[in-house]
Design a protein around this nucleic acid. Structure first.
Lengths: 345, 345
DNA sequence: ACAATTTTTTTGAACGTTACAAAGACATGT
DNA sequence: ACATGTCTTTGTAACGTTCAAAAAAATTGT
């Protein structure tokens, strides 16, 4: 009634001379309304710019259309780009299905679950999306106990608790492909630079290289280290000493470091004997080949899983999907990471 | 009543033998309740794990405690890290004040405003946070017309519409400081590598270098280019030809490129004659000096501004805050970006 | 002991929506 | 004309919360 206030079902109904329920039906159950009435109501809705109140709707239906997602601490930055991309894709997929992403921060896994449970209790979210599952991750079990629907980006590692929906990328397949490629262009002694064995995803990536190199029955040249560029360089130097002529790396950061060792003598346009992981912008800029994760597809699938669970919470057909990454081949484009031959520029 | 359902004010009240309003008061207006009653109610609340329904609350109070924030397309990645950090800090600040961040995506500025207006109409958000203001940005004006409280990270550039709250970092002061530092360690011919003149933030950063170099009355050596590492290298090469001995760059990406030209002959531990901007992890890894933005402070302030506007929408005391960046000085740590002298490792 | 005052608690209504059931309109077959 | 069935519309109630005002209880002063 008040001129300033936003339109509601009641105000529209009064204006049109129909009942509130009829207007509601036009929105939620159009087939139940006679065509003539429907069109009249739809026109009024459009003209008024009416939007259903999510509070009113949530109160009545007990659905918030919110998905809780923890914003992890800023990680390396160079590798966080994959998560960045994933975030974007998830938000897009969720939005397309009518869901909104609710961000929050938490200090650790337990605090994350507590925060999610609180948000659920408050009716702020219908489900959660977990990122970056690790070995023995406690969150899936806890969330299941709480009764909050969820899916994870990252498979369940180890035996802890596996009855949930997840999407992950097959790191093993990626590094296998990368290693085989380096072999195919003439490298027999392909080394691997990766993370400590505690990292489940890291071990997965290592397994692919291992499988490919084992086929050649040569010496296995590998290094476990941190994720910095510097550490990549140091590890690369060591592997080169041991006779490696090329390396597959667990990340682009490590690959960037390895370049300074393995790109020696190469000129712009060459295929570099180093392959990274995650296909970050840095790799693109430099012309570094890298294993690319199908981030958008993963995001779409994980949102599908979440929506499915929200709509059918009883149907406990938890499923996992393992996506295959692809190898992005490139030639050296930029002179970073080694002294360029000046004439090439 | 039902054993499964979550506690509500009504269920608590019934259980305690008090009225609903009393329980509500314990939560929102504790001073109004007698101590003995209050403690009894508080104990029951804690024991039951009760959380107020945000839907019920929002419906009644017309406050959603949501802040809309657009997730921008993944940018360079190497520089997006600043935004990443800002996102994190904003979420943390907002959460500490009881607000939740609602993510969404939009194709362009107009779509962003439309989406925000829709969310406001639906009662999903109370306010918006705009990021990355550009020259002639249409959003502040549009949002003001819509009547949605907001603040921006980024000052209003140009004359378009300035009556709004904002927080920004003084890029000019940062590059001035950087240039002066390079001068102080012996460089007279400090060049500048920046972005095209269309970039308002870029021009701001350039202005600081300009001011510092103008004081020496020497030749002004500068280049406008894109933001890639490669372009940084090319520009650096050109400036070096013209006689520059050091450069200040508009970003760490550019600085990374410039290093391959200006770090020639340097050894690990040297102070590099290149200074970047935004203090990204890459700069940290390499040992590149960089201008650091006070991201967390900016986030806290912009959230303060938003909360202030939500609570006092009539008080139109739009204010801008300009924060000073700091110069992070480093010494060359990693061998990326140039051939390392092998013995140093 | 009682009126006046203050403190504490309760009552009733409303925020906007949808589920459910019932009523009304309309057509069909006898 | 009337019962029967289908299609369309409407009334009532409820989701959980807070506001405003009224009622009840406790405190104070005389």
């Amino acid at each position: 009634m008040a001129p300033q206030s936003r339109p509601t079902l009641a105000s529209l109904a009064a204006q049109l001379g129909v009942s509130i329920q009829t207007v509601s039906n036009v929105i939620n159950n159009p087939e139940a309304v006679r065509l003539a009435t429907r069109e009249r109501v739809e026109a009024a809705i459009k003209a008024s710019g009416y939007r259903p109140s999510i509070a009113g709707r949530a109160l009545r239906t007990r659905r918030s259309w919110g998905i809780g997602m923890r914003l992890h601490p800023v990680v390396d930055g160079i590798n966080g780009e994959v998560l960045d991309h994933f975030f974007h894709a998830v938000t897009e997929s969720a939005q397309a299905k009518g869901y909104r992403i609710n961000l929050f921060i938490a200090a650790d896994a337990v605090a994350e679950v507590t925060a999610l449970a609180d948000m659920q209790a408050a009716g702020a979210i219908d489900a959660a999306l977990l990122i970056d599952t690790g070995l023995g991750d406690p969150r899936p079990k806890l969330l299941t106990e709480v009764g909050l629907p969820f899916a994870t980006f990252g498979r369940p590692w180890g035996e802890t608790f596996t009855k949930h929906s997840w999407v992950d990328v097959d790191g093993k397949a990626g590094s296998y492909q990368a290693t085989r490629y380096l072999q195919s262009i003439g490298h027999e002694r392909v080394g691997y630079i990766g993370w400590p064995a505690e990292s489940a995803a890291g071990e997965d990536r290592r397994a692919g290289w291992l499988a490919a190199q084992a086929e050649l029955a040569g010496e296995l040249l590998q290094a476990h280290t941190g994720n910095s560029v510097r550490q990549g360089s140091l590890a690369a130097l060591e592997l080169k000493k041991q006779g490696a002529t090329a390396v597959v790396c667990a990340s682009d950061s490590l690959a960037l470091g390895a370049l300074s060792v393995f790109a020696e003598g190469a000129v712009l346009g060459d295929e570099l004997p180093v392959i990274g992981f995650d296909n970050t912008p840095v790799a693109r800029a430099i012309g570094l080949s890298s294993v690319s994760q199908p981030v958008e597809q993963a995001a779409a699938l994980v949102v599908d899983q979440i929506v499915g669970q929200v709509n059918a919470p009883l149907d406990f057909s938890a499923q996992g999907v393992l996506l295959s990454p692809s190898l992005e081949l490139r030639k050296w484009e930029s002179m970073v990471a080694s002294q360029p031959s000046r004439k090439e520029i």
